[in-house]
Simulated assay, not measured.
Amino acid sequence: MTVRKVLLFGASGYLGREVAAALASHPGGAAVVRVGRSAPPGPGWARHDLVTGGHGELVDLLTTTAPDVVVNCVGLLDGTLAELVAANVTATARLLDAIPVAAPAARLVVLGSAAEYGVVPEGLAVTEDMPANPVAAYGVTKLAGTALVRAAVAAGEVDAVVLRVFNPIGAGLPDGTVLGRAASAVRSALTAPGREVRLGPLGAYRDFVDVRDVAEAVAKAALSAPRPDPVLNVGSGVAVPVREAVGLLAEAAGFTGRIVESDPVPSRSGSVDWIAADLTRARLSLDWSPRRDLRTSVHDLWAAAV
Rank of each mutant, 00 (worst) to 15 (best):
304 A>E: 12
153 V>E: 00
82 A>D: 11
133 N>D: 08
58 L>A: 06
180 G>W: 01
290 P>V: 01
59 V>E: 13
269 S>W: 03
304 A>Y: 06
258 R>N: 08
215 A>I: 04
72 N>I: 11
236 S>T: 12
173 L>G: 05
296 T>C: 06
246 V>Y: 00
266 P>N: 04
20 A>C: 15
32 V>F: 08
282 A>R: 02
1 M>Q: 08
194 G>Y: 09
230 P>M: 04
215 A>H: 00
37 R>Y: 08
55 H>G: 10
19 V>H: 05
44 G>T: 02
281 R>C: 05
116 E>I: 13
285 S>M: 10
44 G>R: 07
94 R>A: 07
239 A>G: 13
282 A>W: 00
223 L>V: 12
58 L>N: 08
110 V>K: 00
218 V>R: 03
286 L>W: 09
139 G>N: 03
235 G>P: 02
9 F>L: 13
87 A>H: 02
174 P>E: 03
43 P>M: 11
95 L>Q: 07
236 S>C: 09
256 T>S: 15
241 P>D: 08
211 V>T: 06
200 G>S: 10
270 G>E: 12
121 P>F: 06
277 A>Y: 01
297 S>G: 09
99 I>L: 07
98 A>V: 12
82 A>F: 11
298 V>T: 11
170 G>N: 03
225 A>T: 12
238 V>K: 04
253 A>W: 00
103 A>C: 09
65 T>P: 05
293 D>Y: 10
271 S>I: 11
6 V>W: 01
212 R>C: 01
198 R>T: 14
161 V>K: 00
128 E>T: 10
287 D>T: 14
133 N>W: 07
197 V>Y: 02
156 G>S: 13
53 G>K: 02
220 K>A: 06
